[in-house]
Simulated assay, not measured.
Amino acid sequence: MLENKEVQIRDPFILPVASEGKYYMYGSTDTNIWGKGTGFNVYVGDDLQRWEGPYPVFRPDSDFFSDTNFWAPEVYAYGDRYYMFATFRRKDNELLGTAVLAADSPLGPFKPHSEGPVTPESWSSLDGTLFIDEQGSPWMVFCHEWQQVADGEVCAMRLSDDLKGALGEPVVLFRASEAPWTTPYVAKRYPDQDNYVTDGPFLFRSSSNQLFMLWAGFIENKYALGIAKSSSGRITGPWVHEEQPLYRNDGGHGMIFRTLDGQLKLTIHAPNQTPDERPLFLNISDNGDAITLING
């Protein structure tokens, strides 16, 4: 068994499985996620403190479209299967894209479901997350990478019901600089542009059915987590940003889930430096109109 302090992971994503009394924790699990990709692992536990594993849930075949930067897997029960949304760097144009994989079990093995990334081929796109709208239609919400557009974007794209592809062009929901809490990111590789980062969007409906989005950026070059609310209650917004970040202590890429006993939790990775990143679990409060941190 491993404790949280022993698990190196970025972008943690929790899938609770009530029938098993278990939590499945996925994330970017390569020791050096900035280099060659080996696949994704999962950790399994029942208390969010101790974990069995890691167990391999995805290993690429030799003809897979990527061999570098395997990032941010999110796993959802959808229909009668489990679907993984994950980011990879393409071999053909060296741009990032989010693809969909599928398996019959949370333990995998996950196999390619979409024909490569479903995000636009000419875009550098990452951190795709699944959202089901009020009509039951699936969408992918993802980031158009700041390295390509300077002012990182969060975009939404309608998916086919089988999750194999896009049904339309992406819609830009907002740009990072629109949030009052974020500041320019100083990057050595891009010194001549004003960089604003968007990372890790995640959608959550409050107890009063209001639609919130978590997303990560930077404050004075430290990783932080912000929150925005759709004033229409729909994925297309418009999106209104909170004045202050939800978490600013060099952690982010968060998601919200309900524990097996009904409590709301936020998980992020912190700090943001490899190889020190660890999963962090925080209590949150939902009063219907706002999402707030109870501790941390």
Rank of each mutant, 00 (worst) to 15 (best):
E145N: 15
W146H: 11
R59S: 11
G152N: 06
F110T: 00
E153Q: 13
W123Q: 03
T98R: 04
V118N: 02
F85Q: 04
D161L: 02
R158S: 00
L48D: 14
L126K: 06
A72Q: 07
E52N: 15
G53Y: 13
G136S: 04
A102K: 15
T119R: 10
L107T: 03
S125K: 10
A103N: 12
Q148L: 13
F64M: 06
D61F: 08
K111Y: 08
S125G: 10
A77G: 07
R89T: 13
T68I: 08
A77K: 15
D161S: 06
G116C: 07
A102G: 08
H144P: 06
F88L: 06
F131M: 00
T98P: 07
A150V: 04
R90H: 07
L163E: 02
C143F: 00
R90A: 12
Y82S: 12
G116N: 07
P138G: 01
A102Q: 13
E134A: 03
D162H: 07
D127V: 03
F88M: 05
L101S: 03
G152V: 06
V100N: 05
E52K: 14
S62E: 14
F110H: 03
A150Y: 12
L96P: 09
K111G: 03
Q135I: 00
Q49W: 06
T119K: 10
W51P: 13
Q49R: 11
D61M: 08
Y82M: 14
P106S: 10
L130G: 01
Q135S: 10
G128F: 05
D127I: 02
P73A: 04
W51L: 13
I132L: 00
E153R: 12
E52C: 10
F110E: 05
D92W: 14
M140T: 05
L107S: 08
Q135A: 09
E94P: 01
P112Y: 09
T87S: 15
W139D: 01
D67M: 10
A103K: 08
F110S: 01
R89A: 12
F110Y: 14
S124C: 09
D162G: 05
Q148H: 13
P60H: 11
F131H: 01
L96S: 11
P117F: 07
P112S: 07
F142D: 03
Q148K: 15
